[in-house]
């Protein structure tokens, strides 16, 4: 069995998280009032609010796992190995930008 690449997982998760968050590509939705998971949003008002975050994490995790399985650590250029932490930083900044309507 091939080992998973930790560096590629973090990079792929971080970059894909921006996309799945911006485009709302949650793998599933959770309805806390009914305690139910659904693949698409329910139209009935009685279903209560939908939670997207679990599904967003699941989407990005799937992409991260796939990348970490297919890509190898040594494919990362040596001069970039010290700067991989910039990908989560950019995801955090993108999240702040996408949530700016709460603060302005």
């Amino acid at each position: 069995m091939r080992c998973l690449s930790p560096a590629w997982f973090t990079v792929a998760f971080s970059l894909s998280y921006i996309v799945v968050f911006a485009l709302d590509l949650a793998l599933f939705l959770y309805y806390p009032l009914r305690r139910e998971f659904h693949l698409s949003s329910l139209s009935e008002p009685s279903a209560g609010p939908a939670m997207h975050w679990y599904g967003l994490l699941a989407s990005a995790t799937c992409i991260g796992l796939l990348a970490s399985l297919l890509l190898r650590d040594h494919w990362i250029p040596a001069r970039l190995t010290q700067w991989l932490w910039l990908t989560p930083v950019s995801t955090m900044l993108a999240s702040l930008y996408l949530l700016r309507h709460f603060f302005v």
Binding site: P6, F9, S14, Y17, T91, S95, L99, H101, F102
Partner: peptide, 20 residues
């Protein structure tokens, strides 16, 4: 609400940073 939203997203990003 925005502060908590940031907390949840940053928390998820932090979790994904653990392998690195």
């Amino acid at each position: 609400v925005g502060l908590f939203e940031l907390k949840e997203h940053f928390g998820g990003i932090g979790l994904a940073m653990l392998p690195l």
